[in-house]
Design a protein around this nucleic acid. Structure first.
Lengths: 201, 201
DNA sequence: GTCGGAATGGCAGTCACTGCCAGTTAATCT
DNA sequence: AGATTAACTGGCAGTGACTGCCATTCCGAC
């Protein structure tokens, strides 16, 4: 038998609790790594600092690295939605641009945390690789959105793929430059400039 | 005292021998993985099939994954050189385009092997992530070449980074589409088309 | 209060990878 | 040829990420 639908509140409560734990663990993992360096922090260390059993860590995150990409999934959802929300009449590049800029703005909320985490990721090979892979997922999201607009099959539409890929690449490049320069500009502005540079000769 | 310079021949011999071993191991690793799937092949399996001790495997490759990226370093050197070889008067985008196309042509030699390996990499998360990271190195090479031409500092020059990033992204996208479609076109042609699409509205 | 499912913990095992030392090979010198 | 020396290889023990399994605990629902 299907169990009686539980009152919303309790479900939310469980989910929220779970989410809070994840946040805590992630925060601790990042802090410890910043302090001691990635390979001087074991999962056991993180677990102990978070006051959980090591086994439990892997119930919250599939791997040690995943604590560093806590908000990735939400951002993917956000990006997909932001793109879908653009008016259908708008030129496709403009829509993509707007969606990505919305995402970038999202980041400016906690620039310092973002900068710290990004620098860490850039330094550690396994995190860097993971990050690059996840960037590929953003690209997939964009490509699908674009293909949907164009009425094509994303995987086979070179145009959609190139638009998505070059956009994400520009975003990525903008963040890297932002990290390397003092950071007097906001992420949003640098990204905007980078997006303009794609199509410029 | 510095040892007397050894006759070239012997040095080359050692290097060649070493290179041959590496090739052998890599080939075996790819074959086994294609047959059984990535996580049903241990390093011990590969070592045994290659008739070496497991410990020796890690003398040839820093990690299990690295066998799949055997020729990466050569390609980076090739790309750097190809870009440096372009005439200084040429527009920068044209130079980058020519260099990347030269690289793509390089691949058409053994399309089938390239396709098989690429499909494998695309399937396996850790290989995919590693691949994405190495793609980032190509981007760095291109960005440095571009910055040198422009007389700027690569890390801080947004324009150089965006040109490099969007180019590599297009290359990447082209390969993915090539993999997804039947492959009636050559890699070179698809890449050329992708590069054109970057700057197109 | 108690029932049932979800979350947690602990344990043992696999596998990637590393440092260390010993044995082997192979190039160089006399 | 035989001694010397450096590179290559192998084995061993240890660490750390991750997994499957089972016992325990927690907590909302009745």
């Amino acid at each position: 038998m299907a169990p009686a639908a539980p009152p919303d509140e309790s479900v939310d409560r469980r989910a929220r609790r779970r989410q809070r734990t994840r946040n805590d663990i992630a925060r601790i993992a990042v802090r410890l790594t910043a302090e001691r360096g990635y390979d001087h922090v074991t999962v056991d260390d993180i677990a102990e600092a978070a006051d959980i059993a090591p086994r439990t860590f892997f119930r919250s995150f599939p791997s040690k690295d995943d604590g560093f990409f806590l908000d990735h999934d939400e951002r993917m959802v956000f990006l997909r939605q932001a793109l879908a929300d653009r008016p259908t009449g708008e030129p496709i590049r403009a829509s993509v641009r707007a969606a990505v800029l919305a995402l970038a703005e999202h980041v400016d909320d906690d620039q310092e945390a973002f900068r710290a985490k990004s620098l860490l990721i850039r330094q550690v090979p396994s995190l860097r690789a993971r990050s690059a892979d996840r960037t590929g997922e953003w690209q997939r999201v964009l490509a699908e959105g674009v293909a949907q607009r164009l009425g094509t099959d994303a995987e086979r539409d070179l145009r959609a793929q190139v638009i998505a890929a070059s956009t994400v690449a520009a975003l990525q490049a903008a963040v890297q430059v932002w990290l390397s320069t003092g950071g007097e500009a906001t992420v949003h502005d640098v990204v905007a400039e980078a997006l303009d540079l794609i199509t410029e000769a």
